[in-house]
Simulated scan of single mutants.
Amino acid sequence: MKFNSLYQVIYWFCTSLLIALLFKTSFTSFWEAWLVSLFFIPPALLIKFSWPKIKPLPKLKRVLRTFYLAVFSLYFCYLAITLAYWYFLELRGGQMEKVFLNPVLVWIILGFFVGLDAYLFVSQNTSNSESITIFSDRKKTNLLKNDILFVESRNEFTLVILSNGQEIKNNVKISSWENKLPHFLRVHRSFLINPLVAVLNGNEIIIHSKYNIPISRSYKKTVIDFFKER
């Protein structure tokens, strides 16, 4: 994980250099263009870390928050460009149209590098992609850990809810599931969730804009701290 974090730092540093190359012709030196490109990194990181939380929300909220995120990222980038125009170019005439980019181009630049980051640094943790073998309806069933959304205990049995909506009934106790899925998060005596597809919303967890999972008092602090750190 340390190496993965280092590679991401290197990736975003290289990204700033590539963005600077796009701006080079608008400034007197590459150094000036690079300083401006650094202002593109915070909104790109904001998109990177915000989108996983926005994606599972209900459609209306997802659209509104995506709109706000797009407007804020554009505003931040234009603010950087405006400061550059004022500081480096000293408000020289004839330079404004060279410095200011089409907003669609700004979004394309941000989207490209955020998407490439997601592609390159998608979690390679093999424990998440391993399969689990259980008995359901007296048949042996193989489940991929990545496909599991959450596990629900119903006293005599437990239900495993998969990303395709399928429900797998089994006799494995939720405490045993917790050992089988160490990267999952216990939010309730009866619920164990996959945090990679979960969004914290007040006193509940929303998964795929479809499942509302309650958070019990005994797990609330742990759950809130987990999502703050993430």
Rank of each mutant, 00 (worst) to 15 (best):
K2S: 06
N4M: 10
L6D: 00
Y7P: 00
Y7R: 11
I10W: 00
I10R: 01
W12G: 04
L17G: 05
L17N: 02
K24I: 03
K24C: 10
F27K: 01
V36P: 02
S37T: 03
L38W: 08
A44P: 10
I47V: 12
F49K: 09
F49G: 04
W51R: 05
I54H: 10
P56C: 09
L57F: 12
R62Q: 15
L69S: 14
A70S: 13
F72I: 06
Y78C: 15
A80Q: 03
T82A: 15
L83Q: 08
W86K: 10
F88N: 00
L89V: 14
G93E: 09
M96I: 12
E97Y: 07
K98E: 13
F100A: 01
I108H: 04
Y119S: 13
Y119A: 15
S123Q: 09
T126C: 02
S127D: 14
N128W: 12
I132E: 07
F135L: 11
V151I: 15
R154D: 05
N155P: 03
N155T: 15
F157G: 02
T158E: 03
L159W: 14
N164D: 15
Q166H: 11
Q166P: 00
I168S: 07
N171T: 14
I174N: 01
P182W: 12
F184G: 04
L185I: 12
P195F: 08
V197H: 07
N201C: 10
N201M: 11
G202F: 10
N203T: 11
P214G: 08
Y219D: 01
T222Y: 04
V223R: 02
V223K: 01
